[in-house]
Design a protein around this nucleic acid. Structure first.
Length: 104
DNA sequence: GCCTTGACAATTC
DNA sequence: AGAATTGCCAAGG
């Protein structure tokens, strides 16, 4: 199980209607601070709900078209927006099966 | 084996 | 508020 695999699992574990930040994914995957790994994981990981991953504070990281699409997809799933930000107060998701669950 | 590239995050000015 | 700086990890050249 590589780090990227865990990151992908975290992303895959985000339920519909919720979002998570790059930092949270990285932290949950066992590498706090390595938000860029999350980027990598998403680019490589196909079939992942990449649109449920947003930048810190719920900002949409993608520029232009892709950003619009992400926002669309999220709205379709029931995520509420405040300007160009997600309402993290409501939509933030924290995985319940993080790397912290490793066997002792 | 070193350097660059990634849809970032947090701090500082 | 926006730009610059640093830290983090993995893959590809």
């Amino acid at each position: 199980m590589t780090t990227l695999d865990r990151l992908r699992q975290v992303v895959a574990g985000v339920p519909r209607g919720k979002v998570i930040t790059y930092g949270q994914v990285a932290a949950a995957g066992g590498s706090p601070g390595a938000a860029r790994l999350t980027v990598w994981a998403l680019q490589k990981g196909m079939g992942l709900p990449w649109h449920r991953v947003v930048a810190a504070g719920g900002r949409i990281a993608l520029p232009g078209e892709q950003g619009r699409e992400q926002r669309l997809l999220l709205e379709i799933e029931g995520v509420k927006f405040r300007g160009n930000r997600v309402r993290m107060d409501l939509q933030n998701w924290t995985p319940r099966t993080p790397a912290s669950r490793r066997k002792p």
